[in-house]
Design a protein around this nucleic acid. Structure first.
Lengths: 212, 212
DNA sequence: GGGATGGCATAACGCCGTTATGTTTCATGT
DNA sequence: ACATGAAACATAACGGCGTTATGCCATCCC
């Protein structure tokens, strides 16, 4: 395996096990038996390495969300997607933080203050977001959007999932899955059940997804 | 004014103007004409100074939310509170990040990995949260909670506001207040209007608050 | 007045990211 | 097959960071 891949693998492992402050050029290079220069040969600097980590994180995130099955009940699928979103964020807490810029390992900020639309990390985030938009569109075909576009509804769901996950990661929602029951699932209900012509069926869909 | 206050004031100014990486012991001390030791005499270490910044941020945040007037229409008040929440987060982006641990200046994490309920920052966050709970309780007296506790509903609103603000700060919701119209206010509607016995009146309340 | 205490300056230590420099390795073109 | 140039790499150094050790001095208390 190439040095670059070894470095990236070690970085992802250290990030998951020891947090962002463990991402140090000297430690990483030593861990794979190389000199510090390896980081600069393959990534330019530490910021480049962190960006590569974030890119890998977006790939895994997209794969995780894509793995949510389509059951023919798009509202249940959306709820399942929200739960899968939380699963990923909690299982990869530090990686999730790096992806969304809420963690700055060693003070290396990934995004420039004046971020542009062409920023590759920005685009990677939008790509993962597009999976959510597509799922909302499938639900929208059943006639539930009430004048809102799928992008707008997807952005609302994204806000809920993002905020919920960060607060649960910060420890504000008690141990284990208490927050899921009292916060996340009620939010899914209010977002997905409130509109449309079959509230009872939609509510049942949410419950069905919640029990898996 | 005491050295400690001068340091804190300079730190808050630098954080707002230049971001978290500007919080450096040497630079701050030089800015107020003192030696580096001043930081360690008054705050122990840089983590202590950042915690003091966060504490000040929570005070300002609570004051900002408390300034939202009570109009006798608790649903409109809640919507106004959500908008005030966004105002604070966007006007004090870096401070907001430090408060909620989404920004780690220089890699100094404020919260221990095993955060306890007694953590003063954790408690400060809960105190600001209690303002939201109280506002929800006032709305709940009009009979809208449908079996949910005020704490649960407040946690849902908090998730929405937190996630929305962080995503808007990350630049995902376009320029200016576009996200407010298409994401935040629709979320307020779905959270506040969906339940209760007077959906039309509640919807009007949200619109009224949105126009101020 | 004398001694303890706390605020402060100076200087140093160790670690970090980064870079300069020289060496090795390897693919490529003739 | 051999020369050549680029890429990968090791070593060592530089500057900046947080932090600490040490000593000075003002202040308060008995």
């Amino acid at each position: 395996m190439g040095t670059r891949e070894l470095l990236l693998e070690a970085a992802l492992r250290r990030l998951a096990e020891s947090g962002p402050e463990a991402l140090q050029a000297r430690k990483l290079a030593a861990e794979i038996g190389a000199s510090t220069m390896a980081v600069y040969t393959h990534f330019g600097n530490m910021t480049g390495l962190v960006q590569a980590i974030a890119a890998e994180g977006y790939d895994r995130f997209a794969a995780h969300l894509s793995a949510v099955p389509r059951t023919g009940d798009p509202v249940a699928d959306l709820t399942a997607m929200g739960l899968a979103y939380r699963d990923f964020a909690l299982a990869n807490a530090h990686l999730y933080g790096v992806m969304f810029g809420t963690t700055e390992p060693g003070g290396h900020r990934l995004r420039a203050p004046d971020l542009t639309e062409a920023d590759p990390l920005f685009l990677a985030g939008k790509e993962a977001f597009s999976l959510l938009v597509a799922a909302v569109e499938r639900a929208g075909e059943t006639g539930r959007l009430e004048g809102e576009s799928a992008v707008e509804v997807a952005a609302q769901i994204w806000s809920v999932a993002h905020g919920y996950c960060l607060l649960e990661l910060a420890g504000y929602f008690g141990p284990d899955g208490e927050g899921v029951r009292s916060v996340l699932l009620p939010l899914c209900r209010k977002l997905l059940v409130g509109s449309g012509d079959a509230p009872e069926a939609a509510r049942a869909s949410v419950e069905r997804a919640a029990n898996d």
